[in-house]
């Protein structure tokens, strides 16, 4: 049988550990497809985060480096500066990139490191049991905001970090997409391709934020979780290109 829909070579033939309805599977695939389309597999070095995607190297079939929680872009800086000929990207969640790793993220972007950053925003800490993330929405219930996130209770506001990064001179491209519908997935794919192509053209730092469902923590069915992205998350995190130098 001639199969039309096949696994990209950069994805391993593996069963993932992700929960039903999780967005990581889609996003792993989008990254792998892009790398294969641009024929970069043999020169790619990925950096895996700490969080749900900690073992992303079990699913991607190219060189991958571990990073301590939040330090992915520091690790990526070390790799890329030593091997400018390699294509280096990080894949990080909201806790990793915006909370514990904010300094590394901000300064890597500000140095204009020629890197690609894939930022997975699911508005919670999935791996550790659903605590509040820096991107948790106002009123959103999590394990550590049982009454819903409240700025009045000293829990702060969701951080729109892609917009903040876009204000830096070193950032070439910043965009926000979602994996909530085929239409948005296609857009996400095009942003990811742009972010990798920029690196090939030595344009500096590119970040693609992707709103991604976490049905387990959100306590929603997979379909409802997708709907929640489209109806609620996008109000705080509007989709589209934020900066394209």
């Amino acid at each position: 049988m001639n199969r039309k829909f096949v696994k990209p070579p950069s994805l391993r033939d593996a069963v993932t550990h992700y929960c039903s309805g999780c967005g990581h599977g889609i996003l792993h695939r989008l990254v792998a497809e892009t790398i294969d389309e641009l024929e970069l597999r043999e020169k790619t070095i990925g950096v895996a985060p700490v969080g749900c995607a900690v073992i992303a190297y079990d699913y991607w079939d190219f060189d991958v480096c571990e990073a301590a929680h939040g330090r992915a872009l520091a690790v990526a800086t070390g790799i890329k500066r030593c091997r400018p000929e390699s294509v280096v990207f990080t894949y990080q969640g909201d806790g990793d990139l915006v909370s514990i790793g904010m300094a590394e993220t901000f300064h890597t972007a500000n140095r204009g490191e020629n890197l690609t950053c894939i930022f997975v925003n699911n508005a919670c800490y999935g791996m550790t049991g659903g605590q509040m993330a820096p991107t948790t929405l106002i009123g959103q219930m999590t394990a550590t905001t049982p009454q819903g996130r409240s700025p009045k209770a000293g829990e702060g506001w969701p951080i729109k970090f892609s917009e903040i990064l876009a204000s830096l001179e070193g950032v070439n491209f910043a965009a926000r997409a979602a994996v909530s519908s085929p239409k948005e997935i296609i857009k996400a794919r095009s942003y990811i391709k742009k972010a990798f192509s920029n690196q090939l053209e030595n344009k500096g730092f590119s970040i693609v934020e992707v709103l991604s469902p976490c049905p387990t923590v959100w306590q929603k069915k997979p379909y409802e979780a997708m709907k929640w992205i489209d109806e609620e998350m996008v109000k705080t995190f509007p989709l589209g290109v934020i900066k394209d130098k």
Partner: peptide, 16 residues
Amino acid sequence: ESELSAINMVFGAAAT
């Protein structure tokens, strides 16, 4: 930007 970042940059550099 910090000692944390420096040692993790070294981690990446060493990995190559």
